[in-house]
């Protein structure tokens, strides 16, 4: 069976980069498609809200 992970090794890598921008830059330099998430701590890191968000979002 052709599973998702087997297919990954044959596919062009298209990335959602969450975090260090320089990794996204490196992918762009290689001519690969990448979108950059400008990541910040969700809910300012409040643990109660993080917990709630994990249930709802």
């Amino acid at each position: 069976m052709d599973t998702d992970d087997k297919r990954l090794l044959r596919q062009e890598i298209k990335t959602v980069n969450i975090g260090l921008e320089l990794f996204g830059e490196a992918l762009r330099q290689q001519g690969l498609q990448v979108v950059q998430v400008d990541w910040r701590a969700p809910a300012d890191g409040d643990p109660e809200l993080l917990d709630i968000l994990a249930q709802l979002l």
């Binding site: 910040r40 969700p42 809910a43 300012d44 809200l49 709630i52 968000l53 709802l56 979002l57």
Partner: peptide, 8 residues
């Protein structure tokens, strides 16, 4: 409201 709280 979820997205507002998540992203600030």
């Amino acid at each position: 409201i979820r997205k507002v709280v998540q992203t600030g």
